[in-house]
């Protein structure tokens, strides 16, 4: 049981951090309800997963995958190969990390797309990679810490950016970018670590 190192962001532990965020969310929910804003509200009491229906079977539609792929193209460095089937397999093909996670991810995708349509004149897929990044920035998602139960922007950071980065960094396709031939999270066998930089192949 070797200890992991302690750093500021890595000291996770213990007592209830109480429900500061829950309180905020509750207040937000009340405010939204009081304002009579029933339509298209992306935040507040919770991101509302879209589509309805078979959320557990197929949480994401083709359109969601397409949008998520378009965002991945903007978030990943350009040399990272990515297409829709890769995104679908890597993101939605993995074991769902927590119950409801995929639904929240889909809701985050929808929130980003909605913002793109409202303030960038079209869906994410119609925008250039630079403008896709602009959408994320103008939503406030690039200047917050990822927070699963936070505001819409924090959730976009947590679910959407977090998932995309996780699947990239645990895939051998990112090896050229990171210099890690067998990235943690990928079952690349027990030969690579002995091989050294002179070896070849994965």
């Amino acid at each position: 049981m070797t200890d992991s190192k302690s750093t500021l962001t890595d000291t996770r532990d213990d007592l209830p951090s109480l429900s500061r965020r829950q309180l905020l969310a509750a207040l937000g929910g009340a405010a939204v309800a009081a304002g009579g804003y029933g339509y298209g509200v992306g935040g507040g009491a919770g991101l509302t997963p879209g589509g309805g229906g078979d959320a557990s079977d197929a949480p994401a539609s083709d359109a969601h995958i397409e949008t998520l792929t378009a965002l991945a193209e903007a978030i990943y460095p350009p040399s990272m190969p990515v297409d829709e089937s890769w995104i679908e397999n890597r993101v939605f093909g993995r074991v769902e990390p927590q119950e409801g996670h995929f639904d929240q991810l889909v809701a985050a995708v929808e929130a980003v797309d909605e913002h793109a349509r409202a303030r960038f004149g079209g869906p994410v897929t119609a925008l250039s990679p630079g403008h896709r990044r602009g959408v994320l920035h103008s939503m406030g998602a690039t200047e917050v810490h990822p927070t699963a139960d936070g505001t819409t922007a924090e959730r976009v950071r947590f679910y959407l950016l977090g998932d995309l980065l996780y699947v990239m960094l645990t895939a051998p396709e990112s090896s050229d970018l990171t210099g890690i031939a067998n990235p943690p999270g990928y079952p690349g066998g027990t030969d690579v670590y002995k091989r050294g930089p002179g070896g070849d192949g994965q």
Binding site: A74, P77, T142, E143, L169
Partner: peptide
């Protein structure tokens, strides 16, 4: 002012490269 995360080309990656 708020320590923005760069995406795309400037994405900061955990790396063992040197």
């Amino acid at each position: 002012p708020f320590s923005q995360t760069q995406l795309g080309e400037d994405l900061e990656l955990p790396t063992t490269d040197g």
